[in-house]
Design a protein around this nucleic acid. Sequence first.
DNA 1: CTTACGATCATCT
DNA 2: GATGATCGTAAGC
Length: 203
Amino acid sequence: MDRLSKRFFAGPTLEVARRLLGVRLCSCVGGVEVVGRIVEVEAYGPVGDEASHAARGPTKRTQVMFREAGCCYVYFIYGNHFCVNVVTEKQGLGAAVLIRALEPLRGVQEMQARRRIDGLFGLSNGPGKLCEALGIDAKLNGEDLITSERIWLSPGRRRLSERVVDSPRIGITKATHLPWRLYLSPNPHVSQRNRDVAAVHLT
DNA sequence: CTTACGATCATCT
DNA sequence: GATGATCGTAAGC
């Protein structure tokens, strides 16, 4: 299987976040392969980011964020949901990119079954939703995306019609001024919440 | 169309 | 005991 190698994850977190747009996130949990194209991400850390889970140093929950770039940080939130991150930066710094939305590409039937809905929309247009659709839970925390058989990244590009847009991050109360949420526009699989926030078009 | 709130638990105060 | 990188449902325009 064609997958991203170690060098992809090198460089500043915001740069890696931008590079992840268009890349395919793949899972194989319970024998079924499911693939989605990343259309929305958020960068966290490594320094001066009060909204990051890593802001106060490593804890039992956040230790994976301090590992080598390319690890997979999965956490449980709000009593119901999991969210998946790609660890970035050099070991010990504590930074990651939260995957916020996917465009379904393969395994749509499995995604629909796991999400208990029909159609192509609403399957993976949010960080908790995409984890449910791909079967991602705490068992995948710490998995190495470069070598894992259960979760990995595969090359992909953004389309000529798609611009990269940045905006404030969602669902946080600290450091809300940082425009570290990046998404592809236009793309109908970006999460709905805050679609109307002031956004700046980049390239 | 929009906003409000409950679910449910790891982590921190 | 409160909060949180959320979601789905219900209720209000």
